[in-house]
Design a protein around this nucleic acid. Sequence first.
DNA 1: ATGTAATGACTCC
DNA 2: TGGAGTCCCTTACA
Length: 480
Amino acid sequence: MKRKPMQVDATGSKGKGKKRTGEDTAPTLSKKLRDRKDGETSKQGPPLPPQSAGVQKRSGHGSILHFIYKSTLGQSLHSQMRQMGPGDSLTDMKFNQLNPTQLFTSSMGGTDSSSRFQWDNSNRVCQHRHSENGAGDFIGGIKFCPKDVSKVYVASGEGTLTLQSFEGCTPTLLSRTQECGHDHHNVCYWYCCLDVSVSRQMLVTGDNMGQLVLLGLDGQKIFSDKLHKAKVTHAEFNPRCDWLLATASVDHTVKLWDLRNIKDKKSFLHELPHEKAVNSAYFNPTDCSKLLTTDQYDEIRVYSSSDWSKPQHIIQHPHRQFQHLTPIKATWHPVYDLIVAGRYPDSRVCPGDQRTIDIFDSNTAELVCQLQDPAVPGIKSVNKFNPLGDVIGSGMGVTVLVWNRSESLISEQNKEEETSASVENLRGQRRSQQRSSRDRRGPAAVDAKLKKKLASLEETKTKTKDGCTKQKQAQMKKKK
DNA sequence: ATGTAATGACTCC
DNA sequence: TGGAGTCCCTTACA
């Protein structure tokens, strides 16, 4: 099961004059993907076999998803960030459905817990703005208001559920947990997740003690009961079947509920027991018939509605829980049957791993692509595709990375370095390939649908310029 | 460079 | 069922 895809230099690293460490590799991508590109565009004949394809070609522009932009929240934010206490890590991010250049993030710690990033069409500018309202210690969930995307629902660590506007209006308080009156904090209960159902005109949230709450969009309480034995980490309406609700909990279970018939903790439709606490349970956006769960150790599971009693796939993937790390949640691609998840290497699971961002084919459970940027060495806990599926937002600490398809990101002088970098990658890959013969499966293993998707990603049309990225990198370096 | 502190989950009594 | 104690071992900032 410890399969590793090829990792290929993504060519996204810009102008690295200095050596950093031995792992000073450029962002990496699936070799499979690159092979395609090489084969299709560079007149080099058919795609290379897997073994050789991992080596970065001098032409070097074959990557699909390029690292295009990174920032530590920008200059202006730094000062504000300082006001935030330590441990101020990203907890969630959402792309704006209507404005694909907007990315909302939420974090923990400090008083400014949610912010907005925006990059313009050339990806050269990144703005960010804090919410007007310092919502609280941390934000358990954010969700765009379906009726008005200038507003977001926010579940905060202060125990409130609010509807907030980024246009300067005062937040509307929808719900609040009980105050405890203790010395060092106000609440012992807080909301940890959030979802909205338009057709049901309903909000769902769950708290850190296992309570599940259903509210009208105006905040009126519809249902409230302790349905889980421990924190409700995730609650989600099924978009297609609006009476179907999924909840995930640290009590090691995921449960499916019929909203028309929800009474108490025993009234679930299905219980999906897990080995460990569960961080999330997402329905797939394409047809909402599958459920993607991520536990707190090394399992990503795919369930199918045809049989909830057992998972269709269990993907072994290291992402163990750590107190000071945002829990890792595998998330869906909006259009294709792909999954993205950040890897937290664990020698007990897969020795020699890197802190990559992994993309799996949910039909085959095969790892098809890994992203890595040596300039951002941390564990990327939060990873989301944008609604179009051509951009991945990755969050780590207070750093946000945006992976985009692009062409010609690298300058001539970089190609040399990147070539050697990719050799490093290849070595690492060979190491891991020895662990499993399945790892040697090449591009042929990619099914038609995936290929189509990859092909679509190949249509590069990015406007990213080198100047932008260099500038950003200079910023990064300065910071060190 | 070094230290510290950041509302997580689990076990045991 | 709850609280103290332990362990997981990252990140950002002083």
